[in-house]
Simulated assay, not measured.
Amino acid sequence: MAQASPDDLLREGAARHAKGEIAMAERLYRRVLKLRPDDANALNLLGVAARQRGDLPAALALSAQALARQPRSPVFLASRGGALAEAGRLAEAAETLRAALALRPADPVALRNLGQVLCAMGDAAGAIAPLRRAAELAPATPEPWIALAHALREAGQDGAAEAARRALAIPGLDPALAAQARFLLAALGAEAVPDRAPAAYVRDLFDLYAPRFDQDLEGRLGYRTPGLLAALVARAGSGPGRVLDLGCGTGLSGIPLKPMATRLEGLDLSPRMLAEARQRGLYDALHEADLLAWLPGHRGAFDLVAAADVLNYLGDLGPALAGIAAALRPRGLAAFSIEKGEGAAYALGQGLRYRHDPAHVEALARDAGLVPLAREETVLREEKGAPVAGVLFLFRRP
């Protein structure tokens, strides 16, 4: 039987790739490269597969190799731009995506990626034109409409709710995308506020934010919550023990918690945040899970559960506080922050995070069996140049 040609292997790999058979597609692309080492299409597609698996270093290396062989390929430029965006290299991503669009201006995916990059760079107004064009070119694709809705909301322009509703009207809309569109409408006051942010939305948000999270929070946003929470715990005088960093992110919060821990574990929804946390070498274990699903399976496991800027993605805090209380050993401590609201038990802000009434939160914690030890008002960080008011709480399980 004749050996399959590189072109045959490439076609088969692309077909498998389109079906979601990533591992098989990668094997076929590598076979192409053994036969034809300079095949730019195989390098590019292998890079796309690596990015889909979350291997950004490989995606960046492979996209660079493909582009070196065909520098004016709009397909390769678009792939490279997408990889740079996910790696947090936003200025390079914008430049590369613009180069791709100069060669192929009607590429809806490159237009959407450019718009999302511009939003991430703080230029929501500049993102609107490419996102609107992407939605026009692919009106039956929900992602451009949702991205446009976010950009219009962030820019303070009209039409965000209409764009979100256009996404919701698409037949067969994925439930996770539908939940995100409805969550955005709730933030705009156009739908009832749900009791939590959609888990898939939070995971995707922080997956994309992971590469630049530390730089943004500690530099541009003046983030202080982990250190303030740790200081609150230290003043309680509790000895070292088993600590859970709830919503650990990249591990920023683990730094002040580490001296308090005989064993430090982290929990987060975002695999890319956890990958960043793993590189710090602080944690004895890291878990990828939703806190509401994970906590009930770990009753009486921890001496301290700390949650810095985590509960603002939940509206109804009753289940979370009950889960935290159950996960504590007797005399264990719960330390967490909230964004401060007034009047309503909770409200969804324009920033797509919840604000909570402190008195209501304290009542929920008492209902969960926790005893209040400390409550401290503070500034958590800055947002659009304005301070974000928050409250730190410390409770003990009897």
Rank of each mutant, 00 (worst) to 15 (best):
G239C: 10
R72S: 08
A176L: 11
L333S: 06
L168C: 09
A181N: 08
L118N: 00
L295Q: 07
L84M: 08
G227K: 08
V305Y: 01
S63N: 12
R397M: 09
R242N: 13
A200R: 07
A345M: 06
I255L: 14
Q157V: 12
L267P: 01
P130W: 00
L252P: 07
L352R: 14
A49T: 04
G115E: 01
T96N: 01
R196E: 13
E191Y: 12
M273T: 05
G13F: 04
L232N: 06
E265N: 06
G82P: 01
G156R: 09
Q157P: 02
E143T: 12
Y223L: 04
L274R: 02
E288K: 03
V202F: 09
R329Q: 13
R27G: 15
D284H: 11
A25M: 10
L137G: 00
G254D: 05
G54Q: 12
L137Y: 00
A50G: 04
E218H: 14
R331V: 11
G82N: 05
V391T: 13
L370M: 09
Y209S: 06
G122Y: 08
M24W: 15
A345H: 08
L373W: 07
A151L: 05
Q279R: 13
R224S: 13
Q65I: 09
A40D: 05
Y346K: 10
G351L: 12
G281N: 08
R69G: 05
L286Y: 07
L229Y: 05
R272P: 01
A230I: 05
L257F: 05
G222Q: 12
D39I: 01
R235M: 07
L252A: 06
M260C: 09
A200G: 09
A160P: 06
F395E: 01
R263S: 13
A345S: 12
D284E: 12
R104C: 00
A374N: 09
V305E: 02
V391P: 01
A181E: 07
S337K: 09
Q116A: 12
D204L: 11
P171M: 05
R242V: 15
A110P: 05
A325K: 03
A345W: 03
E342Q: 13
G115D: 01
R397F: 04
A42Q: 03
L28R: 06
A160Y: 04
E154M: 13
I324E: 04
S79Q: 13
R329A: 12
G82T: 00
G341S: 02
A78K: 00
A138N: 01
D245C: 06
G122D: 08
Y346G: 08
L137N: 00
L348Q: 06
A192C: 11
G254C: 08
H298L: 10
K340I: 02
L370C: 09
V388H: 09
G54E: 13
A163D: 02
G323A: 06
L177E: 15
V202K: 07
S253R: 04
H150I: 11
A66W: 02
A230G: 10
I146M: 09
A163G: 08
L137K: 00
L394V: 11
A186H: 10
L43M: 11
L246E: 02
A135N: 04
P198S: 06
N41S: 15
L77Q: 00
L286T: 11
L28D: 11
